[in-house]
């Protein structure tokens, strides 16, 4: 039994009618961490969550919860609760009845239920909403009731399936911070599913990037952003310039017809690689000083910065900068060695 991990997924695979939607997933989830499953729709993140919740059975592999195999345990016997995508609040019950549902099943005394519901409503900022009907609540309020309904059962793990998907942008930003604070306050494990990379970066302790039923990378938000393991991760998380290059030797990489210093090592001599440079890491300078030279071909105002496309003759570089250069301007670009990120080339079908 491993004390640091609360949930372990071992070699989980899932097939529907012979189609593999999850392929050999291994995942170790630490106690009290905020873990996000991130990926495009159809990547298998929701299926993974549903397997943890017990709503789906894996075709292969097992799920360990606090050292015990729970693969065969039905959802109603797991100490795990879920906040569903569209909340799945019971429309024929009011707020109180919804939240008390789980406690009633556990035969908690009426007095205790009353105090617990009150307490949890305070936690989600919905004091005195007990007798409101579900249909009279706004989307954000329904969201809070769904969270309260799950948390009141004091689960060890809370699963959240794109819980903010139906909210508007402003409310979503507020809820992101609130959810993160809530997780810290109740001190339990949150497993969060989203396709929104920004949301994942803001809230998570660790992120699991998934695509086509396979885990692409696991790491902290900073790691994932700065050290994407492959082209998919680099493209999915943030904007990036991805160029083909050749690793000449340790700390020396060639791309765009030039040799650059870098901080990567451990590749074969002259191995073909992919190079990632984030748009904000390309610094604008006068043409003569630039490691790369090109002409600005388009410019878009993005609020905090400008986004410019600079063509160097063969490659279109995307740059984010607070300095504006008008279309047609010849400029130079500099990139620091630590901002050049070299990845192994993966042939993807």
């Amino acid at each position: 039994m491993n004390k640091t991990y609360i949930i372990e997924l071992e070699n989980i695979s899932k097939e529907y009618d012979g189609i593999r939607v999850l392929d050999n997933i291994n995942l170790y989830i630490k106690r009290n961490e905020f873990l996000t499953l991130l990926g495009p729709s159809g990547c298998g993140k929701t299926t993974t969550l549903r397997i943890i919740g017990g709503f789906e059975q894996p075709t292969e592999g097992k799920i360990i919860f606090e050292g015990k195999d729970i693969t065969e345990v039905p959802p109603y016997k797991r100490q795990i609760n879920t906040v569903f995508q569209r909340y799945a609040l019971f429309p024929h019950m009011n707020v109180f009845e919804n939240i008390a549902f789980g406690l009633n099943i556990k035969k908690v005394s009426q007095k205790e239920i009353n105090s617990k519901v009150k307490e949890i409503l305070r936690l989600v900022n919905l004091q005195s909403f007990e007798n409101r009907s579900i249909e009279s609540l706004s989307g954000g309020q329904q969201q809070r009731v769904a969270i309260a309904r799950a948390l009141v059962n004091e689960p060890e793990v809370l699963l959240l399936d794109e819980p903010l998907g139906a909210l508007d942008l402003k409310l979503r930003k507020e809820m992101q911070i609130e959810l993160k604070n809530m997780q810290k306050r109740v001190g339990i494990t949150f497993i969060y599913v989203t396709h929104d990379q920004e949301e994942a970066l803001t809230m998570s302790d660790s992120i699991v990037v998934m695509d086509k039923g396979v885990v692409q990378q696991i790491g902290t938000p900073v790691d994932i952003y700065n050290e994407p393991k492959n082209r998919f991760v680099a493209q999915f998380i943030g904007d990036s310039n991805i160029i083909n290059g050749i690793m000449l030797e340790d700390f020396k990489v060639e791309f765009a017809g030039k040799v650059f210093d870098c901080v990567d090592k451990g590749f074969d001599k002259n191995e073909s690689v992919e190079v990632v440079i984030r748009p904000e890491d390309l610094e604008i300078t006068i043409q003569e000083k630039g490691q790369l030279k090109g002409i600005v071909t388009s410019i878009t105002f993005k609020g905090v910065h400008y986004e410019m496309i600079v063509n160097d003759g063969t490659i279109d570089w995307k740059i984010h900068s607070t300095i504006m250069k008008s279309v047609g301007t010849k400029i130079g670009m500099i990139v620091a060695p630590e901002n050049i990120h070299v990845m192994k080339k993966v042939t993807r079908e």
Partner: peptide
């Protein structure tokens, strides 16, 4: 909402209880 029965079971209801109550 197709997750309604699942939500009930998630909160500890057996399938029969979820059917009856939800």
């Amino acid at each position: 909402n197709k997750h309604l029965a699942e939500a009930a079971m998630d909160l500890g209801a057996t399938p029969m209880y979820a059917m009856k109550k939800v």
